[in-house]
């Protein structure tokens, strides 16, 4: 491509190129191998769900793919760019809604969206239009001019997602986007994911719920202790589970031979430092 790309409007020929290509991804924190040789390919315009319990390495995976952490080893391409060498082009293409809402609590909802629009270098008219449209779409218009500190957790979560969308990403990472949400907000998030995909956007989401992976994903990868232990369409995965159960414990037992609770030796250890140094770039 020679011309500057318009986010969200990839050339038709690119739609079939993988949005994410990962081979041999390794990441350790000290002696703890959090990702232990992960291979992953996500075609553009599809939804991929990383399914796994607490401590499986989902957030670490998202942090690496979204340029926040560097991998120890592995061949990684995101949105067609080498993750290490072209990280700023990767950033221009992606949007991230992390596991915990990252919004400015001192600003109003409208100001939060406006901040993201300004940092995306949208012109005034476009920014104003998109802000209003997103506030309406996420049912936040009534509270838009109140400080987000006073908002409910569900509203904050929806705003976080709106802040990601206003940057017009071609590839979106959603880290446990519905954990802790009420059923209505969860449906809302699902609807947004489907709309994005209909527009040609690629979505990689992580979840602890098989039901969610089933409802949204084209392909599901089961992450267990840093390895992808199973991968396939939701139907293929469910076929491996005896009976009718969609309970994650049952899926895990069937796929890994052990239960969810037994997978994370470090999860019980809250003593780890609160922040992690990234390799200098």
């Amino acid at each position: 491509m020679t011309t500057a790309h318009t986010p969200g409007a990839a050339a038709p020929g690119r739609l079939t190129a993988p949005a994410i290509e990962v081979t041999g991804l390794h990441k350790s924190f000290g002696a703890h191998h959090v990702l232990d040789g992960v291979d992953l390919a996500v075609p553009a315009g599809t939804v991929y769900a990383l399914l796994g319990p607490n401590g499986a390495g989902k957030t670490t995976m998202v942090n690496i793919l979204s340029t926040l952490l560097t991998a120890d080893a592995g061949e990684l391409r995101v949105a067609g760019h080498d993750l290490r060498r072209e990280s700023s082009r990767v950033r221009a293409a992606i949007g991230v809604t992390g596991q915990f809402s990252a919004i400015d609590m001192f600003l109003t909802g409208r100001e939060n969206l406006r901040l993201m629009a300004d940092l995306t270098h949208l012109d005034r008219a476009t920014a104003a239009r998109d802000v209003t449209a997103l506030l309406d779409r996420f049912d936040l218009a009534d509270a838009a001019d109140r400080r987000t500190l006073t908002w409910s957790g569900g509203m904050q979560r929806r705003l976080d997602l709106a802040m990601t969308l206003i940057t017009r990403p071609r590839l979106i990472f959603l880290d446990e986007p519905t954990t802790g949400l009420d059923p209505r907000s969860r449906r809302e998030v699902w609807r947004v994911v489907r709309e994005q995909v209909a527009d040609g956007v690629t979505v990689l989401l992580t979840t602890q719920y098989l039901e969610e992976a089933d409802a949204l994903a084209d392909r599901v990868g089961v992450l267990d202790a840093g390895r992808l232990v199973a991968e396939g369409t939701p139907a293929e995965l469910k076929a491996q589970v005896p009976g009718e159960s969609t309970n994650l414990d049952d899926v895990f037992l069937a796929l890994t031979g052990h239960t969810v609770a037994a997978t994370d030796p470090a999860a019980a250890d809250p003593s780890t430092d609160t922040t992690q140094e990234m390799t200098a770039r």
């Binding site: 700023s88 950033r91 940092l119």
Partner: peptide
Amino acid sequence: TGGMFARFRTMD
């Protein structure tokens, strides 16, 4: 700690 820096760092 609130994640705003991390959010900024995923942006171009």
